[in-house]
Write a protein that binds this DNA or RNA. Structure first.
Length: 139
DNA sequence: GCCAACGTTGGC
DNA sequence: GCCAACGTTGGC
C-alpha cells in the first residue's frame, strides 16, 4: 500500500466537509497541476492519505482512503485532468502542525517541507508512521 | 499583507 | 526552444 497527502484550504474544502460525505467519499477535483495529477494516477484502491489543512490551520487533521482510482475530473471538459475519490477514515486525536513537522529531523525530506506548493504528494511509510504517532492515531 | 517559490504563458 | 513576465500558492 502507498501513502499520500492531500492538501486543501479549509475554507474551500475542509475535513468536516470530507467527513460529511461519509463512506461514499467525494472526488478530489479541481487539481490543475501535472505533478499532482500524476500522483493521483498512481493511486490504488485502499491507499491511505493524510488530509492537510493549508493556510489557516497548516496542520494534518485526519486520515483518508482512496475509494475510486483515477478517472476524468467531472468539473472540467479538459481531458488532461483526472482525479481520484477519497473518503474520511479517522480524525487525528490532535492535529499535527507544519511547525512540528519541520522540527522533526526525520521529516525534513517530506514534500510538505521541500515542495510546499504541491497539492497532492507522496508520503513514505516511515513518514506515515511518524506523523500518525504524532497525531495520536494508529497508522 | 508580504514575499518567495514555482508553474504557466506567450513573444521572439 | 528559450526565457521574461505574470499569476497563484501558501508559509510567515
Amino acid at each position: 500500500m502507498a501513502y499520500w497527502l492531500f492538501k486543501s484550504e479549509p475554507s474551500t474544502w475542509s475535513w468536516e466537509d470530507q467527513v460529511a460525505k461519509g463512506a461514499a467519499g467525494e472526488q478530489w477535483d479541481g487539481v490543475r497541476n501535472y505533478q499532482a495529477r500524476n500522483n493521483m494516477r498512481l493511486m490504488k484502491l485502499g491507499d491511505r492519505g493524510f488530509f492537510y489543512h493549508s493556510q489557516k490551520d497548516k496542520a494534518v487533521v485526519g486520515i483518508v482512503e482512496v475509494c475510486a482510482e483515477s478517472h476524468p475530473d467531472s468539473t472540467t471538459d479538459d481531458p488532461r485532468w483526472e482525479c481520484v475519490d477519497i473518503r474520511a477514515v479517522a480524525p487525528f486525536a490532535r492535529a499535527v502542525t507544519i511547525a512540528e513537522i519541520k522540527e522533526h529531523p526525520e521529516l525534513a525530506e517530506m514534500a510538505l517541507v521541500k515542495n510546499t506548493r504541491l497539492s497532492v504528494q507522496p508520503v513514505t511509510e516511515a513518514e506515515w508512521k511518524i506523523v500518525c504517532d504524532m497525531g495520536g492515531t494508529a497508522p
